[in-house]
Design a protein around this nucleic acid. Sequence first.
DNA 1: TTTTTAGTTGTTATAATATAACACTATGTA
DNA 2: TACATAGTGTTATATTATAACAACTAAAAA
Lengths: 135, 135
Amino acid sequence: MNKMRKEHNLTKNQKIIFDLIDKSSQPLKAYSILYNVQKKGIKAPLQVYRALDKLVEIGKIHKIESRNAFIACHNSSCQVAKATAFSICEICEKVTEISSAGLSKYLANFKDKDGMKYSKYNLEFFGLCKKCTLK
Amino acid sequence: MNKMRKEHNLTKNQKIIFDLIDKSSQPLKAYSILYNVQKKGIKAPLQVYRALDKLVEIGKIHKIESRNAFIACHNSSCQVAKATAFSICEICEKVTEISSAGLSKYLANFKDKDGMKYSKYNLEFFGLCKKCTLK
DNA sequence: TTTTTAGTTGTTATAATATAACACTATGTA
DNA sequence: TACATAGTGTTATATTATAACAACTAAAAA
Ligand SMILES: [Zn+2]
Ligand SMILES: [Zn+2]
Ligand SMILES: [Zn+2]
Ligand SMILES: [Zn+2]
């Protein structure tokens, strides 16, 4: 029903790989994904990368560029993968997708000196997460 | 001796590689840099990557994460190696470092829902540059 | 129904990006 | 001088990602 209409559109490989990323508490790297899905019959890097490309394209996952890793989108308003922001802990590598109406609005409307507007952005914040700050 | 903002004295390899990047009108990739400096005696990837790491660390260059490429900082002696923003044209791949006081201020002060503040960020905007818009 | 089409799959091979390990050299400072 | 710190040169290897091509599948068009 409302549950996984989108997910039903995923192909077998896409679903296997999405489920793995979605269950994970931290971003996963392509070859770590490959290793984890080999028992399900996905044997080659290209099978993983193709699924990842598609999942990124439809906004089910995001790529954390500074880490070459992939995280499931848990931001219901983020249908489109065109406006992403993350916080990254430099100690434990915990990554969280930031969902801030103020931030999205500010960035979506940002214009540079020439008045150029952008169709897409990706923002990565770095610092220490709560847990690591206390250590 | 006090710690005056000592001009980082670049070593030979660092200088060769910085000069190349600085002269370039677009971001350069590590192996493209390697091919271009082989005539100057830099023969191995590691020599390039070590220089790049150092140059990034001291803010003379920045890495464009989504492109795995490096660009010289033109933000007058970049205090902001830890606060970077770029615009990237998705057609011609032209990259420009954004220098906007408003944007830097907004992001430097941004706090997430938990009140977490960040020590560093990188923002990449995507769209079409002026030239490509007109085509 | 059959045909066509776009998209996905499976596979091998290879390209592109980046780091490990180790011996050595240069340079600044006590 | 002796020591510490940073950079160098080198070989080998790890990690991340794409090229090329044949085959399959679902669904749209005829
Ligand atoms: Zn999202
Ligand atoms: Zn942490
Ligand atoms: Zn800069
Ligand atoms: Zn352009």
